[in-house]
Amino acid sequence: MQTLDLAQSDLRTLNATLQTAATAGGNETAWEVVNPRGAHALAVGLDGPLSVTVRGSTGYYCAGMNKQATVQVAGSAGPGVAENMMSGTVVVEGDASQYAGATGRGGLLVVKGNASSRCGISMKGIDIVVFGNVGHMSAFMAQAGTLVVLGDAGEALGDSLYEARLFVRGSVRSLGADCVEKEMRPEHHALLADLLERAGAPAAPEEFRRYGSARRLYNFDIDNASAY
């Protein structure tokens, strides 16, 4: 494993080193970052099968735009962790701040603590598994992908939802506009079983309720198509 020390190196050099290693594809795929001290934009834009462990807590936008790489934060993550992830895996051992996994198109984000407000906002294909609770407005305008919450969800879960699938084990403080509880069918149990296993989450599929879009908002009504 190679070590990058943010007390010795500046952020731009550190990210460039990781990005180069990711695309070069050599044998050296295991990296660790020490002394993150809440720095912003750590390990962003990686495009290759690298494995990066950040030893400590991070600031804004850690592992943003991740592709193929596995990034583990051995601490808590600031706002926008794994924002716009394309593929790969991001694991936060502690808590994640606002809009974790926002706009993500693919890959798996695992938060082992709590995620705060707007988790998975506008998600477009990413899978997100949160072991604890999520805050208000989670999965707002979520278009595709799966959000799994082992704890409770805050106010207005899934407001203005499109086709994303939401599973919550605990309570939901309130559902957002057009978000409704839906039946758990065998295919949902299978989907959830696979996702929980990949995330290493200590829960069983039958403990969850499913929520999704009722498709009653203006944008779902074909009669409104002529307005554009």
């Binding site: 001290r37 809440g38 807590s57 600031g59 804004y60 808590s76 600031g78 808590d95 805050g135």
Partner: peptide, 20 residues
């Protein structure tokens, strides 16, 4: 941000949370 707290004594063992 968490950055502001990193030099405080004993921060590694502190209870760190985001106010609700």
């Amino acid at each position: 941000e968490y950055r502001a707290l990193v030099d405080l004594p004993g921060i590694e063992a502190a209870r760190v949370w985001e106010p609700e």
